[in-house]
Amino acid sequence: MELDLDTEMNLDDMDDDLLVIGDSQQYLFFILAGDIYAIDVNNISEMIEYQAITKVPLMLPYIKGVTNVRGKIITVLDLRERFGLGETKLNYKTSLVITNNIALIIDEVHEVTSVEESNLKESINFGVKIERRFVKNMASYNNTHIVILDCDEVLNIKEISQKRASK
């Protein structure tokens, strides 16, 4: 019994360490248009299932509207459309990742895991389907290179708050 208690305590300690002890940082890995992308978990306040969205007119096509998250009004942005990868086709795996009061529509949550700093690399030009400016850096992950998104750029308010050009 005593041993069990000890291990539990150690586990708790370790959890904290994962977040605190530098050199490694947790990321959310998710699927978008068939590829895996990552976001620093520090940018994320919560993840929820896709839910009904109220359309707000006159906005850019990737600003889908607003949704009600426990009484709070959250802007919804289609990440695929933002990257020019076509509109998201909804299915039961479609999720909303909420960062800074804006919900990003993603195709599927993959996993949350930590990446050591030594596994982070400068962004590379080839093999990346999205604009370079959205890429913060790259992470080695299961022998592939994964794009870590630059949230500030993805959610650039000046850019995404523009009105749709009138027809």
Partner: peptide
């Protein structure tokens, strides 16, 4: 509505 819609 949030800052995204400020110009609306």
């Amino acid at each position: 509505l949030g800052i995204v819609f400020d110009q609306l």
